[in-house]
């Protein structure tokens, strides 16, 4: 474990906590894409299959359970909570997220480290996580005013993977140049997708104005 990866995990955890707080405190999920949240549940389920078979550390197991639990409860709130589900922008959150999941799965069948169920599903989760934010970014462009909590949520979500990129550079130089192409390239794509959001988020923060994405 290095400080970059710990910072990345904490940023990721903070983003999820901010989203849960927004939903629970305001009893609203306006501006949040259910499609992206469902993709994240799939990412965690397919990535943490070895949760009970491989023990790495108390931290690793705890965080996996927290990520699984929080992501599933967010989807539950948005789908089934009687008050929250009324606030879901159903008619704007129209991204066909299966068009994202299927190519990722096919790519995982083609390009992986070894051809086993666990490894192919893990690889699928890495590819899927890279594009899972797309429905959320599309929804942000459609929803005129983005509330601060939603903006902060997306910013922290993008920042966590950027910190992971730094962690991979650090591990490359400190762990006998071990190469991890699949997470590296996926992580690069994932972080790049946030580029224009980062630009407008930082601009709105600097000029102290409402965050607005161009349509």
């Amino acid at each position: 474990m290095n400080v970059f990866r710990l910072a990345g995990d904490m940023t990721h955890l903070l983003s999820i906590i901010i989203l849960l707080l927004k939903i629970r405190a305001t009893k609203s999920c306006t501006g949040i894409s259910l499609k992206t949240q469902e993709l994240y549940v799939i990412v965690f389920l397919t990535r943490y299959l070895d949760l009970f078979t491989k023990y790495i550390s108390f931290y690793n197991t705890t965080m996996k359970l927290v990520f699984l639990g929080t992501s599933i409860s967010i989807v539950w709130y948005m789908r089934y909570h009687k008050v929250v589900k009324q606030t879901y922008n159903k008619d704007q959150d129209t991204f066909r997220h299966y068009f994202l999941a299927i190519p990722c799965f096919l790519l995982a069948l083609l390009i992986h480290h070894e051809f086993t169920v666990i490894e192919v599903l893990w690889t699928f989760s890495i590819y899927l996580e890279a594009v899972a934010i797309l429905p959320q970014l599309v929804l942000l462009q459609r929803s005129r005013n983005i509330d601060n909590l939603t903006g902060n949520y997306v910013f922290l979500l993008g920042a966590y993977r950027a910190l992971y990129l730094v962690n991979w550079v650090y591990r490359y130089f400190t762990e006998n140049h071990l190469v991890r192409w699949i997470p590296w390239l996926s992580g690069l794509v994932q972080t790049t997708l946030y580029a224009d959001f980062f630009y407008y988020y930082i601009k709105s923060w600097k000029n102290n104005e409402k965050l607005q994405l161009p349509a």
Binding site: R5, H12, D50, S57, N60, H113, Y164, N167, L178, P183
Partner: peptide, 10 residues
């Protein structure tokens, strides 16, 4: 490839 890559990340 033979290099074992540890899956110790989240």
């Amino acid at each position: 490839t033979d290099t074992y890559i540890p899956k110790d990340e989240l």
